[in-house]
Design a protein around this nucleic acid. Structure first.
Lengths: 146, 146
DNA sequence: GGAAATAGTAAGCATTACTTACTATCCAAT
DNA sequence: ATTGGATAGTAAGTAATGCTTACTATTTCC
């Protein structure tokens, strides 16, 4: 008894896309032989982009809870890709930064990012691609702005 | 030491979006008092859309592994929303279908889907919205078609 | 000086989804 | 007719992502 339901609803579509892209990234990371998950890669990218910072600031920027980030940093620190140091201006706080070893991994991540972007973009024109990007960012705002 | 890295890469953007939308859907489901997760809702929607079907067919349609679907169906069956019955034409196979109780839940899911769509869409025109949808579907193809 | 806020973490859990290995059954070729 | 390979479903285990709640150590503000 089919029914008036659309399984291609926007939420499902985005969720599907995210799952497929993550699987694809996973495969590429596997192939590249760098031992980080997509989530860890994201943290590395943010640190690389903004530089040494306090964990709470970093968590805010990435959009994660402090605790969630703490776990990621634990793993990245164990892998020798991130270093935590006490913040001299606040003994509660810690600063997170990349280690020199992270550079190689980051190079791979950037490369993979480009590949994925290329695959996603397909034959969209630069203009279409930028508009799509802007629209998705706007939508993200709708859901994160509360 | 900032670096030439874009933390708004397409993959991250989509992943973020998926996470935020799922959290939003979670909140709405919570508020609606129906006890299903977004993943379970997805399964219900697919069954509603295509009707009674074998599990392997259903898994294929949703894009899940047979085992993953099996777990979902276990939970949905326990909640009394789905019913499994032997396929008369193949004793290995089982057919999954919705129970009458699922109708109420499905109504809520459809309503939530509309709300989410509205929130996502914002002030995009019908034309822009349809184009965005089509572009995302095309991109999904790029990643699922392999 | 003391109350309230803040930074980080320990612990535990939920969701989503996978792989590998197994059983039961079906089908096709000998 | 039988047997060997494919197929349908599931048991069991694992992994990634991310959350909440509760705690400790500080800092800051009154």
């Amino acid at each position: 008894m089919p029914r008036q339901v659309d399984p291609a609803g926007f939420g499902f579509l985005v969720a599907d896309l995210a799952r497929l892209i993550r699987a694809d990234i996973d495969r590429r990371i596997e192939a590249a032989g760098i031992g980080v998950t997509p989530g860890e890669a994201r943290v590395l990218v943010y640190i690389a982009r903004y530089g040494k910072a306090r964990q709470n600031v970093l968590a805010e920027r990435i959009g994660l809870e402090a605790m969630t980030l703490s776990c990621y940093l634990d793993r990245l620190e164990r892998q020798g890709l991130v270093q935590r140091s006490p913040d001299p201006s606040d003994r509660r706080a810690k600063l997170a930064e990349l280690t020199p070893e992270a550079e190689l991994v980051l190079d791979e991540i950037v490369r993979i990012g480009h590949e994925v972007r290329q695959l996603a973009r397909g034959d969209l024109s630069e203009e279409e691609w930028l508009r799509l990007h802007a629209q998705l960012k706007a939508i993200r705002q709708h859901f994160s702005g509360e």
